[in-house]
Amino acid sequence: MLPRDPAGTTDRVSRDRSFKVGFADPDAVSDPRTKALIQNLEARTDATATIVDSTGEALLKHLADGNVDLAIGRFRSDSPWQTDVAFGPALTTHGRSADALELKAAMRNGENRWIMKVERASRAVAEPGAND
């Protein structure tokens, strides 16, 4: 079944029943959509989220290197990280137009099966109209 992950993230999560999550900014932790996304993903993967102690650019670097499976935070729609990591759909949007900040998950580039799984979970818990 396509797609598969080059680094096997989905298989590892399924095998270890665990995935690593970090928060790119402190505000993301308290947002109810963040909690909903993690719970939805835990239910879909039958795995438990392990929170890692890393934030900001260091977290995104860990994500790009494959040390973290998911980074959740508020990012601009034109974030400079968009070529280094894969962003999922917005869970909710704060602000308007170009300055808007989107609360969303970021995944390691190329892990397409894992990305699809997180996208599905994100759409399920997203605020209506967050991606319009």
């Binding site: 080059p6 680094a7 894969a86 390691r108 580039n109 190329g110 892990e111 397409n112 990305i115 996208e119």
Partner: peptide
């Protein structure tokens, strides 16, 4: 060694 991401759409 760029790993291209191909997402899903509705």
């Amino acid at each position: 060694a760029e790993h291209p991401s191909v997402a899903s759409i509705f």
